[in-house]
């Protein structure tokens, strides 16, 4: 396969530069939104315990039919505080970009008041 005078045809230095740029470009993310939930007035945050749960979904070329990873993250959060009130919930939704695919991530962190 001949690459002629293009960047791919100019030897190992060009390929190394290209690979470095690809690596740099491939570590990008997008933070879509952060939501700070209400802090229940009756919550005694001094006695509260921090809880955190994450959910993620790998998507290839945009073909995905559901967003269940959000519900799974919520279920994980609830499982860490059974019988207690979960308040001050911070919800973060972000995407990590990749090669022809990406990973959607949801993160909840909150106070568990038992």
């Amino acid at each position: 396969m001949k690459f002629g005078n293009s960047i791919l045809g100019r030897g190992p230095k060009a390929l190394a530069l290209g690979a470095t740029l690809m690596w740099l470009g491939g570590c990008t993310h997008a933070l879509h939104m952060v939501h700070e939930g209400d802090l229940s007035p009756s919550a005694k945050l001094g006695e509260a315990r921090r809880v955190m749960a994450e959910g993620e979904q790998r998507v290839v070329m945009g073909f995905v039919g559901q967003t269940d990873y959000v519900d799974q993250a919520r279920a994980k959060l609830e499982a860490q505080c059974r019988g207690g009130q979960i308040t001050g919930i911070q919800s973060r939704y972000s995407t990590s970009h990749g090669f022809l695919s990406w990973t959607n991530r949801v993160r909840f962190q909150a106070y568990c008041v038992e």
Partner: peptide, 23 residues
């Protein structure tokens, strides 16, 4: 063009190198 193949996905604003800055 090659870099953009490694940055596929939904975006809000420009890409950042860490999504955890708002935690």
């Amino acid at each position: 063009g090659i870099i953009s193949l490694f940055q596929m996905g939904p975006r809000t604003g420009n890409q950042v190198f860490s999504p955890m800055y708002a935690d």
